[in-house]
Amino acid sequence: MSLLAPVAWAGRAALHLLAGIGRPTIFALQVISHILRPPFYPREFAHALFQVGWFSLPVVGLTALFTGGALALQIYSGGARFNAEVVVPAIVAIGMVRELGPVLGGLMVAARVASSIAAEVGTMKVTEQIDALVTLSTDPIKYLAVPRVLAATLTVPVLVAVGDIIGIAGGWVVGVQRLGFNATTYLVNTVDILEFWDVGSGLVKGAVFGFLVALMGVYHGMNSGRGAQGVGRATKTAVVAASVLIFAANYVLTELFFTS
C-alpha cells in the first residue's frame, strides 16, 4: 500500500493537471460554439463592451504613456554606447506596437477585467444566481460567458491601438523635451519605420489576450468554490491564469508571426 503511494500520488497529480488543461479548453470550445448560435443577448454584450473597453481606457492609456517615455530614455542611454541614439523613434515605435502595447495592455485588462468578471460571476455562482438562470431556461454560457468573451476579444485590440498611439506619444514627448530630438523628424522617423504587420500583429495579439482574459474570468467564476473564500480564490486564480496565459500566448504568437 505505502509502496504504491508515490505512484498513486503521481497519478493523481497527472490527472489533476490534465483536468486543469482539459476543462478550460472544453469550456473555451463551448463558448466559441455558442457565439454564432442564437439566442443573442445584445444588452449584456453592450454592457460588457463598456465594462471591458471604455472603462479600461484610462488605465491602459496611462500604462502606455509611462512605458513609452521610459522606453525612449532606455533606448537613448543604451544606444549611446555605440553612438546610435538616432534609433530611439524606430525602436520605441516597434517595441510599443509589437510587444509592449499588447502585452502591457493585456496585463492591465487582466488585472481589471479578469478579476471583476470572476468576482461577479463567482458571486452569482455562490448565491445560486447561476442555478436560477438555468431554471429560467437561460444558458449561463450564452448569457454570461459569450457577451463578456466577445466584448473583450473585440475591444482589447482597440485598447491596444490606443495604447500604441499614446505610448509612441509618450516616447515622443520625452524624446523632444528631454533628449533633444526634433519634433517633426521624430514623427517622420516613426511613421517611416512602421510597417502594417508591426501594428497588425499587435492587434491580433490583443484579440487573443482579450479572449483569454474574459475566458479565465468567466471560467473561474463559474467554478468558484462556496462562500466568500471561494469567490476570493476564484478571483485570484483568474487573474494569475490570465496573466500567465498572456505571456505564454505572446511567445507562441511572436514565434508564429516573426520567425521564418
Binding site: 448565491t127 445560486e128 444566481q129 436560477a132 438562470l133 431554471t135 429560467l136 431556461s137
Partner: peptide, 19 residues
C-alpha cells in the same frame, strides 16, 4: 429546454439577479 419551461423555483437565498 422543454423540461425547464414547466418549472418555477424559489431558491432558498432568493437568487435575484442584482444587475
Amino acid at each position: 429546454e422543454a423540461f425547464l419551461a414547466r418549472f418555477g423555483m424559489l431558491f432558498q437565498g432568493g437568487a435575484l439577479f442584482d444587475s
